[in-house]
Write a protein that binds this DNA or RNA. Sequence first.
DNA 1: AATGCAAATGCGAATGATTTGCAAAAAGAA
DNA 2: TTCTTTTTGCAAATCATTCGCATTTGCATT
Lengths: 144, 144
Amino acid sequence: MKHALNQKPDYEKELRKAGVRITRPRRIILDILTSTEDHPDAMKIFHRAIEIDDSISLSTVYRTMNLLEEMGAIHRHAFNGGPSRFEQAHGEHHDHLIDVDTGDVIEFQSDKIEKLQEEIARALGYDIIHHRLELYGRKSKRPE
Amino acid sequence: MKHALNQKPDYEKELRKAGVRITRPRRIILDILTSTEDHPDAMKIFHRAIEIDDSISLSTVYRTMNLLEEMGAIHRHAFNGGPSRFEQAHGEHHDHLIDVDTGDVIEFQSDKIEKLQEEIARALGYDIIHHRLELYGRKSKRPE
DNA sequence: AATGCAAATGCGAATGATTTGCAAAAAGAA
DNA sequence: TTCTTTTTGCAAATCATTCGCATTTGCATT
């Protein structure tokens, strides 16, 4: 099992290649996304954005998130049924451990679990398209 | 890995014990919940309910779902970020495989995966409160 | 640098899921 | 049956998200 860490891919090139325009709002939103370690929701992204340019609208944040999601540049999560939270789709697939007290998200990856999931789906006669594994936990008192 | 199947616990007793009143709407909603194999959302439960008594309101369905969830009698899921879907909290814990084409939900349970999750959480310094594992898949062409 | 046009934006109104306030109705104890 | 408290139905409010549309902007082309 391993931790995942962020890196900064060049999304502007990808956007151009996809035939969409590089606008000021998009540049700012991408900047926020690539320079954060957390998993912000649309409102949080919006607030960070208007600090840089207060003319950006919430609709544009939502539209940009949808665009980036379709391009596969970000992933969308709905932890606990709350509002969508986003993260850039960097590197390998990973799952999430959510701290129920703070809302913090820790990323992890386990090949063993992935393998088991495949086996289970196969046994039930299905091919996995995607999956979601979320552990909701609390910092343990005892030392590890 | 095993399938889970439903049974009918007696919720009226539990409700009484929790000090809440047994009303006609509640009886009807509980009946719907205990006699279905699927994972209906509030609107679906509402429609099934008004077929039995057309005076039942949607608010009451929502209020009852919240009540039952707090009592631990049902579980709430937000597959794919859609509206909440419910199921009675019968027997053992289980996870879900969602058919992306039909929306059907298949329940399964794997001790191996549960164990791995515990290990991972422990390694990260957390105790698991609850977790969510959803496989989104499509019926495979090849025979099993 | 000026032009033209499709794509993107900001705004506010619309939508869908869910919750809430409140007066009227029903449950259960006395 | 009566009394007290809980629950209900209804409509309005809330929250996250999307949509319509007039206006602005990116950018390919003069």
